[in-house]
């Protein structure tokens, strides 16, 4: 099946966001960016305990 998804354009848009975000990080004190980032990362971290696979399945998935 053909997809209309434009990978090049997608990367371009994501890089624009990365540049915007880096300018914002540079413009605020460490407490500000790191508080927001920590809320985001902690939620991912807490969710990681729900990862359903065994070490064997996880290592196998990395080889694919």
């Amino acid at each position: 099946m053909e997809s209309n998804f434009d990978k090049k354009q997608n990367l371009k848009e994501r890089l624009e966001f990365v540049r915007f975000y880096s300018r914002w990080v540079k413009s605020v004190p460490n407490e500000v960016w790191s508080k927001q980032q920590t809320d985001f990362i902690n939620s991912l971290f807490e969710n990681a305990v729900n990862y359903p696979f065994s070490p064997e399945k996880y290592l196998k998935s990395l080889k694919k």
Binding site: P29, N30, E31, S34, I41, L44, F45
Partner: peptide
């Protein structure tokens, strides 16, 4: 970001530390 770089040292003062950082 308050970024201080002195030679090989980068100081990240007052960073809120995440659970990933602690790990």
């Amino acid at each position: 970001m308050e970024l201080e770089i002195e030679g090989k040292y980068i100081f990240l003062r007052n960073k809120v530390v995440s659970k990933l950082d602690l790990f």
